[in-house]
Simulated scan of single mutants.
Amino acid sequence: MGIRRILRIGQSLGVTLPARELHELGLKEGAPVEVEVDRVQRQVVIRPLDSATGVDPSFVEEARRFAERHRVTLEELARR
């Protein structure tokens, strides 16, 4: 995969991953992953979550699109 840089993404920091490698793992935007920080080994491990978690990936994608479409209303409701 090669050397990557830490980037500012909004108020957070992140690392981009090449689309080719993600595609080979069957991952796309919005896919759930587990992130583990190993402070002893000084490494970050990202693991795809098994789709056997009981949640249909198409449902997760639809929920994400719904939240994006209605973001303003949902944020307004959360403030009440």
Rank of each mutant, 00 (worst) to 15 (best):
L74G: 06
S51Q: 11
L49C: 11
I3E: 13
A78R: 07
I9D: 03
L27T: 00
R47D: 00
V55R: 11
V15P: 03
G10Y: 00
R80W: 02
E75V: 10
P18A: 12
E68Q: 14
V15T: 04
L77H: 06
Q43A: 11
L77E: 07
I3P: 04
M1E: 15
A63I: 03
L27M: 06
D56T: 04
V44G: 02
R47H: 08
D56G: 03
T73L: 14
T73G: 03
V44R: 07
I9V: 15
V15D: 03
R69Q: 14
P18F: 12
S58H: 08
H70L: 05
L17S: 04
G2I: 02
V35W: 01
E61V: 05
Q41V: 09
T53M: 13
A63R: 06
L7S: 07
R20Q: 14
A31T: 03
R71M: 10
I3D: 11
I46H: 02
A78Y: 01
A31V: 02
E29V: 12
G10A: 02
D56A: 11
G30L: 10
R71E: 13
V35E: 01
V33E: 05
L27R: 00
G2S: 07
V60R: 01
R8A: 12
L49H: 11
D50A: 13
I9Y: 05
G54W: 09
L13N: 02
G30S: 05
L13C: 04
E75M: 07
S58C: 05
L27I: 03
S51C: 12
R80T: 07
D50S: 15
D50Q: 09
L17K: 02
E75W: 10
A19V: 08
R39T: 02
L7N: 11
G30Y: 02
V60I: 14
R47A: 08
E34I: 12
E75Q: 13
E62S: 15
V45C: 04
M1L: 14
I46S: 02
H23V: 11
G10H: 00
F59Y: 14
G26I: 03
L27Y: 00
R64Y: 08
R80C: 12
L27G: 00
R64N: 13
D38S: 06
P18K: 06
P18C: 08
E76C: 04
R39G: 05
E68C: 07
L25A: 15
L74D: 00
E68G: 03
E76V: 11
V33S: 02
E24C: 08
M1T: 13
E34Q: 14
